[in-house]
Design a protein around this nucleic acid. Structure first.
Length: 872
RNA sequence: GCGGGCGUGGUGGAAUGGUAGACACACCGGACUUAAAAUCCGGAGGGGGUAUCCCCGUGCGGGUUCGAGUCCCGCCGCCCGCACCA
């Protein structure tokens, strides 16, 4: 046995089969043990897993296996986020059906994931592209329609006129479609929306309950929801204006600056703008220009503040006799507030830029502390900090907050046409969630349009609305819409010929409830509420921070929607959230500046230096910066090759070592080699220990010598610390603990053959516990060792070793001794030694006496069992 | 611009306000070997000294404290998110 190297290529498939045959990771909903739900964000089936997946799923697997060892009934499922655009692109490029391509990808990725040895319940596998899944999504859509959670309205979209499709913002590059290169247009389309904005306050408030989420993610969501409190305020138009309107309504968060108002600006999309543009060519041209500007934020940000005077004027609401000009301006958004603002240039940078361009007055009304009221003026930087109100009539001398309250009360009391002139209002940045996509490869929206009866949900008995298989992607646009027969259907109400909705749902809908479906994946309803409520919320959810806002916010919303429609009984789907860092790698560039893949590079070291050359040509290769692994920079490492060369355990171990899991980790050859060597080291330790243990068998082992007791303490401390580190997801520290334990055990094993029996016993227990500690991380190696040690059953089923609390506490403690804050020595005393006694002892120590050199201590600080500080 | 994070040896990184650098990688030395690999043992923040030891040291400058990598104030640098939200 000893001397043989551990061979992961042989052992890993063996144990995978053993687990599979034993159904080790199949979870029952009836299991009476405490439930624990761990979930990693399910992958898009691109065809190959990448190192990011390896890292993500390794972490989740450690949690799953650890919680199993803790006696919990663990749910750890896996599925596929299987709808989406790449499948349609593949269909166009390869002339294969999106479904064929997707299902092939799922099969190959599943095989890859299985080769990692993950403790996953594959019987619960789901793919969002299968009718078995999306029919329930359709049912919930219908329920949500009935509950008033869904709406249909006009919305502006990025439209690619060549591909005849809607583009997401990130698909618009420099104002052009990413695929066609055609200039993107803004179009108004009637689209389906989930009314997430109705839940803005609830989603905001809920963030405070998510104490096991990263603060960073909560802040991002808070900003995204963007709550602001302000005032809706009517400005009265002068009577002789060319529109039908009596007033312009604005929204402001700074009503305290009303005395500094110098203009009104309308959005290009404001209804009043449209009315005016009909008889104003200059304005019409400006509106058209604003529309061309598009939604590409990069250009918006840099765009100059521009506007056109409408000829209209309004009365200044608090300065008798004064009027303000009304502009249409390119920086005013229609879908926030009322689509109109009042400009106070002195205290808003945008307004100031605009005012300077059009020579509008700039009147300061907030005075910074310490500034002089006579001489204070705003030049080209607006003053947006706090100060005291001045130049503002009855508001003078107030703080900003007091002025806001006073002016709001004032306008609430004023009336125009019997209505209050102003009204305090809360606004949110969060917009409704547009879910319509003009695509084939998505969940069909279960709606029928009838000329007579209007827009109707598909009756539930007619679900699922299944995607047709015989589709062609020859024409640009929505293949579902192009299908010759699919959309023709009789109206479920009047029976007349009607038309199916051909929009499909945003794939974020698919991923907004899959975690609930996993709890009862075969149910004939979307969920089985009693079962879902027992498993949910997910105890630990793990994934990339790139989903901090959309996926996680949509899932929080959808869970509330499912609660409102009776599918679950809770608000928050994810109790614990962890966002792991990316996997990075060095980049390499050849002589022509082309990217070179790591597999084609040979690294040579000389002393502490490194240089690279091409594997085949031998040409010098430049070693570049460390970047996130990406196909474009070619700095990717294929997990398959790593598993084939080093084994899955090595890859898993390396992904968990060294770097804190929330930070980026750099993939290096040296790091993998190190992980692989450690694997062999464990195996060697086990091999050697078996012999020792066998020699000592039959001996009565009762007493420990000092070494044996010391070893026991190290072992129990390691078991305790590794457990708490895994619970805190500090995998890198758990790994360091395991290294330390291994070092201690190897040292003992080396000198141990003639040791007393008690020490052999400690060693044997140490090795067996070590195997359990590595089992969540290197499960195949652990099973192999477990078997070799003659243990019964699978280590995957073994309970976490019990910690003897008595072994965790030392009865002596070593106190560092500082002189004036600098460490000058140490003293070992019994735990709990009184300060007076410690002081006497310290002052009698030779080294301290020497350093004090006769000087009398001014003060001695003694923190019991911690530290001694002598001040002279 | 706004919001958040980070800055510690050659490297990844440890460190409830209490011995800075655990653990690992890389490196150096030794053992084993005909040799190499593997393995085992040892060394190591920087500077000085044969050594006992001494000085300096957690991006920079201040502060609080008996004591600061950690807390506070002001800078510098890097990374991430949002971005005309009135």
């Amino acid at each position: 046995m000893s001397g043989e190297r551990y061979n992961p290529r042989e052992m890993e498939p063996k144990w995978q089969k053993v687990w599979d045959d034993a159904q080790s990771f199949v979870t029952s909903n009836d299991d009476p043990r405490e439930p624990y739900y761990v979930l990693e964000m399910f992958p898009y089936p691109s065809g190959r897993i990448h190192m990011g997946h390896v890292r993500n799923y390794s972490m989740g697997d450690v949690v799953a296996r650890y919680q199993r060892a803790r006696g919990k009934n663990v749910l750890h499922p896996m599925g596929w986020d299987a709808f989406g655009l790449p499948a349609e692109n593949a269909a166009i490029e390869r002339k294969t059906h999106p479904g064929t391509w997707t299902r092939q990808n799922i099969a190959s990725m599943k095989a890859q994931l299985q080769s990692m040895g993950l403790a996953i319940d594959w019987t619960r596998e789901i793919a969002t592209c299968e009718p078995e899944y999306y029919q329930h999504q359709q049912a919930m859509f219908i329920d949500m329609m009935a509950a008033g959670l869904v709406t249909r309205k006009q919305s502006k979209v990025n439209w690619d006129p060549v591909d005849m499709t809607v583009l997401a913002n990130e698909q618009v590059i420099d104002g052009k479609g990413w695929r066609s290169g055609a200039p993107v247009e803004q179009r108004e389309l009637t689209q389906w929306f989930f009314k997430i904005s109705d839940y803005a306050e609830d989603l905001l408030a809920g963030l405070d309950t998510l104490t096991e989420w990263p603060e960073k993610v909560r802040i991002m969501q808070r900003n995204w929801i963007g709550k602001s409190e302000g005032l809706r305020l009517h400005f009265e138009l002068l009577a002789d204006n060319a529109t039908s309107a009596r007033t312009v309504e604005v929204f402001t968060t700074r009503p305290d600056t009303i005395f500094g108002a110098s203009f009104i600006a309308l959005s290009a999309d404001h209804p009043l703008t449209a009315q005016l543009a009909a008889n104003n060519a200059e304005l019409a041209a400006f509106v058209a220009e604003c529309h061309r500007q598009g939604t590409a934020t990069e250009t918006l940000e840099k765009a100059e503040k521009k506007g056109v005077f409408t000829g209209l004027r309004v009365k200044h609401p608090v300065i008798e006799g004064a009027t303000l000009p009304v502009y249409v301006a390119n920086f005013v958004l229609m879908d926030y507030g009322t689509g109109a603002i009042f400009g106070c240039p002195a205290h808003d940078q945008r307004d100031l830029d605009f005012a300077r361009k059009y020579d509008l007055p700039v009147k300061a009304v907030v005075l910074p502390a310490g500034a002089d009221a006579q001489s204070f003026a705003v030049d080209d930087v607006a003053f947006t900090d706090t100060g005291t109100i001045f130049n503002s009539g009855f508001l003078d001398g107030m703080s900003i907050e007091a002025a806001k309250a006073a002016i709001s009360a004032h306008f609430a009391a004023q009336t125009i046409d019997g209505q209050p002139q102003g009204k305090v209002e809360v606004n949110y940045r969060l917009r409704d969630w547009g879910v319509s996509r003009q695509r084939y490869w998505g969940c069909p929206i279960p709606v029928i349009h009838c000329e007579v009866c209007g827009t109707l949900p598909v009756p539930k008995k007619d679900l699922p609305v299944v995607l047709p298989e015989d589709v062609s992607f020859d024409k640009p646009g929505n293949a579902l819409d192009h299908h010759p027969t699919w959309k023709h259907v009789d109206c479920p109400q009047c029976g007349a010929p009607a038309r199916r909705e051909t929009d499909t749902m945003d794939t974020f809908v698919d991923s907004s409830w899959y975690f609930a479906r996993f709890t009862a994946p075969k149910a004939t309803t979307p969920t089985e509420p009693a079962i879902a409520n027992r498993w949910l919320p997910v105890d630990q959810y793990i994934g990339g921070v790139e989903h901090a806002i959309l996926h996680l916010l949509y899932s929080r919303y959808f869970t509330r929607a499912m609660k409102a429609t009776g599918h679950v009984g809770l608000d928050e789907p994810f109790k614990g959230l962890f966002t792991q860092g990316m996997v990075t790698h060095e980049t390499y560039k050849g002589p022509a500046g082309e990217w070179v893949a790591p597999v084609d590079v040979v690294i040579e070291t000389f002393g502490e230096g490194r240089r690279a050359k091409h594997l085949r040509s031998g040409e010098a290769i430049a070693i570049g910066s460390i970047e996130k692994m990406s196909k474009s920079k070619k700095n990717v490492i294929d997990p398959d090759e790593i598993v084939a060369t080093y084994g899955a355990d090595t890859a898993r171990w390396f992904m968990l070592s060294d770097s804190p899991p929330e930070r980026d980790v750099q993939w290096t050859e040296a790091g993998v080699e190190g992980a692989s060597r450690f694997q062999q080291r464990i195996w060697r330790l086990v091999s050697e220990t078996i012999d020792i243990v066998k020699q000592s068998s039959g001996v009565v082992r009762t007493s420990d010598d000092d070494e044996g007791l010391g070893l026991r303490k190290i072992v129990h401390r390691a078991v305790h610390n590794v457990g708490t580190d895994i619970e805190g997801l500090r995998f890198n520290r758990a790994v360091a603990q395991i290294y330390e334990l291994t070092n201690a055990l190897v040292r003992q094993a080396g000198i141990c053959s003639a040791a007393p029996a008690g020490r052999l016993d400690a060693l044997e227990q140490g090795v067996s516990h070590l195997i359990q500690l590595i089992a969540p991380m290197m499960p195949h190696l652990a099973e192999t060792c477990w078997e070799a040690l003659g243990k019964q059953g699978l280590v995957a089923d073994a309970l976490w070793p019990a910690v003897d609390a008595a072994l965790l506490v030392d009865n002596t403690v070593t106190l560092p001794i500082q002189i004036n804050g600098k460490r000058r020595g140490e003293v070992t005393v019994a735990k709990g030694t009184p300060a007076a006694e410690v002081e006497k002892l310290v002052l009698s120590l030779d080294e301290i006496v020497r350093i004090l050199d006769g000087k009398a201590p001014k003060k001695i600080v003694i923190v019991p069992d911690r530290i001694v500080n002598v001040v002279v």
